[in-house]
C-alpha cells in the first residue's frame, strides 16, 4: 500500500516562500481508483509527483508497503518507477520517431522485449487501437496518442498507475475512453488520478480534495 505522511512542499523564490503542500497525509488502499481533485495551483500535481518519487518533499515521508521512498537514491527510485509504477501525463509525450507499438515498449527491459510485444498488441486492441501499432504519433489523433500513452503505462503490469490530468487535452468521448481503461485497471491494481474535472472521476472509488495545499475533505467512501 502507498501512503504519505505529513507531506510539505515549499518553493522558495528570492525571499518569498510558497507553501504548495501543507502536511498532507493519505493512504492509498490497493485495487481502487483514487481521484485527487482540486483547482489549479492546489498542489495536486505536486503531490502526485512526490508520491511517485519524481519530486522530493520539503518535509514528510512517502512509503510503499512500509518502505520509505522519499530518501531513495536516483537509481533506486528509477528502478522502482520502472518496476512498480506506470505513468500517464497530461500530454502523451510519445517519441515521434517510434511507432505506437514501439512507444508502448519503450520502458521494457531488453530481455523482456519479445515476451512483451504480444502484450502490447493486446493492449492496443483493448484500447481500441487495432492495427495502429505501426503508425507514428504524427499519424494518430490526440485521443489515440493518449490511449497509446495509457498502454505504455500498463505494459509493465505496474502495481500503481499515476495519471496527471490524463483527459485534460482530450474531448469528452476520448476522455471517457481513457478513464474507462484506467478504471478497469483499478479492479486489481491501484490507480491514482489527478484532475480538476469531476465528470472524469465518476467511476472513482475514493476522491481526495486539495485546496491551497491542504487536504480538505478525504472521502474514503466508495463513490463508484
Amino acid at each position: 500500500m502507498l501512503s504519505c505522511n505529513d507531506i510539505c512542499l515549499d518553493y522558495v523564490e528570492a525571499t518569498r516562500v510558497t507553501h504548495a503542500l501543507k502536511g498532507v497525509s493519505l493512504d492509498f488502499s490497493p485495487n481502487k481508483l483514487h481521484g485527487i481533485m482540486g483547482p489549479s495551483g492546489s498542489g495536486k500535481s505536486s503531490l502526485l509527483y512526490i508520491l511517485c518519487g519524481l519530486k522530493s518533499p520539503t518535509a514528510g515521508n512517502v512509503a510503499l508497503d512500509g518502505t520509505s521512498i522519499t530518501n531513495m537514491s536516483d537509481a533506486a527510485c528509477a528502478r522502482l518507477r520502472s518496476q512498480k509504477f506506470g505513468f500517464v501525463f497530461q500530454q502523451p509525450f510519445l517519441l515521434n520517431y517510434l511507432t505506437a507499438l514501439e512507444n508502448i515498449l519503450v520502458g521494457i527491459n531488453p530481455d523482456e522485449l519479445s515476451a512483451s510485444v504480444q502484450k502490447a498488441e493486446s493492449l492496443l486492441s483493448y484500447l481500441g487501437l487495432d492495427g495502429m501499432g505501426d503508425k507514428y504519433p504524427s499519424m494518430l489523433s490526440g485521443g489515440e496518442r493518449q490511449r497509446v500513452a495509457v498502454a505504455r503505462a500498463l505494459i509493465g503490469n505496474p502495481d500503481i498507475v499515476f495519471a496527471d490530468e490524463p483527459t485534460a487535452a482530450l474531448d469528452k468521448d476520448n476522455g471517457y475512453k481513457v478513464m474507462s481503461a484506467l478504471a478497469d485497471w483499478a479492479v486489481d491494481h491501484t490507480v491514482i488520478v489527478v484532475t480538476h474535472d469531476a465528470d472524469m472521476l465518476k467511476g472513482a472509488d475514493v476522491i481526495h480534495h486539495l485546496i491551497g495545499g491542504c487536504l480538505v475533505d478525504d472521502q474514503s467512501s466508495n463513490v463508484r
Binding site: A78, R79, R81
Partner: peptide
C-alpha cells in the same frame, strides 16, 4: 522532452 519522459518512466540516467 524525450529524456525527461524516459527518466520519468523509470529509465535510469546511467
Amino acid at each position: 522532452p524525450e529524456f525527461g519522459v524516459l527518466a520519468a518512466l523509470g529509465i535510469s540516467r546511467a
